[in-house]
């Protein structure tokens, strides 16, 4: 499982970075979304990959029987904040498109 997850994180981050370096604003925003997936998965993975652990406290008192809640709490808020930043980027993108007349990150067309 760890190996698959690690490869997935790498692939998402790689695709995201490639898009981040593209000249069109929409590419950048999709790139940021992919990178945020990768980062969220990474933070989540730091807590340990557990299949079938209890997420909610039950009768057992042994903490090792449960999934690690701390990275989950971090990632949960990160997902919501990620939505907010995507919205902000989108609006900045649209405004910049309105002002510059094109969707190049530098506001000037010319380079592909």
């Amino acid at each position: 499982m760890e190996a698959v997850l690690a490869i997935a994180i790498g692939a998402l981050a790689g695709s995201g970075v490639w898009l981040l370096l593209r000249p069109r604003t929409f590419q950048v925003i999709i790139g940021l979304t992919l990178i945020s997936y990768a980062v969220n998965l990474f933070i989540f993975a730091v807590g340990g990959v557990r299949v079938g652990a209890d997420p909610v406290l039950g009768a057992a008192t042994d903490p090792s029987r449960y999934a690690d809640p701390l990275p989950q709490a971090l990632v949960l808020t990160a997902i919501v904040i990620g939505f907010a930043t995507t919205a902000l980027f989108l609006v900045v993108l649209l405004t910049s498109r309105g002002f510059a007349g094109n969707d190049h990150v530098d506001g000037e067309d010319g380079t592909p």
Binding site: L5, A6, I7, I9, G10, A11, A13, L41
Partner: peptide, 8 residues
């Protein structure tokens, strides 16, 4: 990508 995968 490769770096992050190996780090993870």
């Amino acid at each position: 990508g490769v770096g992050l995968a190996s780090l993870a």
